[in-house]
Design a protein around this nucleic acid. Structure first.
Lengths: 376, 376
DNA sequence: TTGTACGCGTTATCAG
DNA sequence: CTGATAACGCGTACAA
């Protein structure tokens, strides 16, 4: 009797109701379990659902319930040219971790995650369109300027990832730039005793960049060292940008600083490359430090001293905050700061071998211990 | 006159119509540009849209148009324990690349991408739910068994990523496992002259694993070498799994093969670790090879000889195929095979330095050439 | 405990 | 060129 009426279109709640001999309201209740119904009836419905392979249409559900159970994540995409610098490809990893974390948390909260990468062009239309497909959005830093975020956040659940946190117009999740940079300055100046430093920043309009820069310079000064920075020390967040900064410095004939701290790892790598090309050694001639702890940092020679960001946790927290925001259990101006960790390796002058085939000490321990059984 | 009716709920097409003094049909037309309407009218509508910051509700649109303009990607998720082996974390990267590629292609085709990770538990309910939220799904290999994919693919646009391709029940995008493994066997046997080999496979139920295994063994045999494999050479796709395989071999007292090929890079790393712990050297005592070319492969010591998969392209192609499938311009049984590339490095015995601070030759060339201007 | 009927916001088919 | 109006599939008061 299962005629082929509707071969190509999926079964609806009406089909299930008919097959189970009940009304669509009953089907809905059996599926969502809101109201009580006779177990016998419920079974009939569930059987029909199974037989028909019924799956609720999310559009209809969303329209009716005014909730799509989908959140969006908008991130910055690098150009996908084949000739992109190898190192820049590593940048992607940071965003990937965030995506992972967000996906996991979203799913735990009963939401799906929609992702969308944007380029340098104004992302406003993209964000607007996304706001029609989701219940809320996570915006990575730099996707939208502070000025454009404000009106959006006022009308739509929005969480900023690594925003400045200065403008309390939107909920924000970010890392402890201040703590991280203080620790870094203290290590370079206090521990190593470097007195002449420089700081390569990202972009002038980036809150992350300015916070890191200002904190580093201030802390270094407070410890009696001198740190130069400024527009000509702007590396644009990229390896190439930092490489140019250092090459310009070398060309100018001015003396090299004893240590260079960078607002991210990519720039540290670019700076190292420039020094390498000019015949200077890291860390003997110039010490180097980054920020992020991208995976490659521990595989290079010398290994990179940096500040580790909990990137996956960043994504998780952002998603969790967004869901709370959507469900009304979080203030729209909520600010959350995640801790960072100074990771001392070789590029500052401390001894630290590159990681080759050998797994980390923790891994070795696990591999040889009883915990091994749980690993798969 | 813009009273605060509906402060908290977004404007609908009715609000726009009212403000522009037209009907909702006209608004819809102005927005979707299907029919011709007086430029003057169109402008009035567009102005109202802007003033109200109107964004179409995707649920309503999807319900009415029977198309959600969303595709889903389901991938395998590793447990997110902190104590996960470092190396395993790298596995994530392969999936991340696929996600990137898929997102990019989806967006180019006018679709959004919904992502969902699944664990070892049966993914059927998850996939079912996702089929209600999307117009089609990309399923990474191992998410669903071939047996369960068939009925789904028959009723819902589905593209398999790296599936066997044996069962023509679903459209499939995969890499050229055969070509890759032939090249690898030819290199190890033909070039290096190894005669006693072993192959560590993933899982017996994985098409990728069996194809790679069978091809490698067959090619090696054809070239006059001997290659052992089988259930006891099953590394479960993980470092730990492969480590156990090698440790069991060492414990058995049987002679070591001269070279070990693995079905993926993680297992090559696990095998290397086991050899390292037992005091054997790679490649002097035992040569090693992987498959995938995960980023870490080029940073290790010795660097890993492997077969590179175009992971990002895999995601792109899958998304493009899925869209074509949805829009009816692709046969539901379409099979696509992407080329792979043998990457000869150090672990097979060929000379190859680890990549440290130094960028690749291509990068160096670009950094010093005129193309530099285009890089940012 | 279960059924009826309305509303959710769009698109698209008719008339006009 | 534009305006009514009927689906689209589901949740849910309100009735029974």
């Amino acid at each position: 009797m299962e005629a082929n009426e509707g071969v190509s279109s999926p079964p609806t709640i009406y089909d299930v109701a008919e097959r189970a001999g009940v009304s669509i309201a009953t089907v809905s209740r059996a599926l969502n379990g809101h109201s009580y119904l006779r177990p016998e009836t419920r079974d009939r419905v569930l059987t029909a659902v199974r037989e028909l392979r019924y799956v609720a249409n999310a559009s209809a559900r969303g329209l009716s319930s005014r909730s799509k159970r989908v959140i969006g994540l908008v991130f910055m995409r690098l150009p996908m040219w084949d000739d992109l610098l190898d190192i820049e490809q590593e940048t992607l990893l940071f965003t990937d971790s965030i995506i992972r974390g967000a996906e996991f948390a979203a799913q735990e909260c009963g939401y799906s995650l929609l992702i969308r990468g944007v380029g340098d062009a104004d992302a406003t239309p993209v964000v607007a369109a996304l706001s029609g497909q989701t219940d809320g959005l996570i915006l990575q830093d730099r996707v939208l300027s502070d000025r454009k975020v404000a009106p959006l956040a006022k009308r739509f659940p929005t969480v900023l990832l690594s925003g400045s946190g200065r403008s309390r117009t939107a909920a924000t999740v970010r890392v402890d730039n201040v703590g991280g940079m203080q620790a870094m300055a203290e290590h370079l100046v206090g521990h190593h005793g470097f007195r002449e430093l420089a700081f390569i920043g990202g972009r002038a309009d980036s809150p992350d960049s300015t916070t890191r820069s200002e904190t580093f310079v201030a802390t270094a000064s407070a410890l009696g060292a001198h740190c130069v920075t400024g527009p000509e020390w702007n590396g644009d967040w990229t390896s190439v940008g930092a490489l140019r900064v250092v090459q310009a410095l070398l060309a100018s004939g001015r003396p090299l600083p004893r240590a260079i701290a960078c607002a991210n790892d990519q720039m540290a790598i670019g700076a190292a490359h420039a020094l390498h090309l000019a015949g200077y050694r890291v860390p003997q001639d110039v010490a180097l430090a980054g920020f992020d702890d991208i995976p490659i940092a521990r595989h290079m020679s010398p290994t990179l001293t940096t500040v580790r960001q909990p990137s996956q946790q960043l994504g998780r927290t952002a998603a969790e905050s967004l869901v709370a925001l959507i469900e009304g259990s979080l203030a729209p101006s909520h600010q959350e700061v995640l801790p960072v960790e100074l990771v001392v390796r070789g590029s500052c002058g401390c001894a630290a071998p590159a990681l080759g085939w050998e797994p980390s000490p923790a891994s070795v321990e696990r591999l040889n211990g009883t915990a091994l059984e749980n690993v798969r």
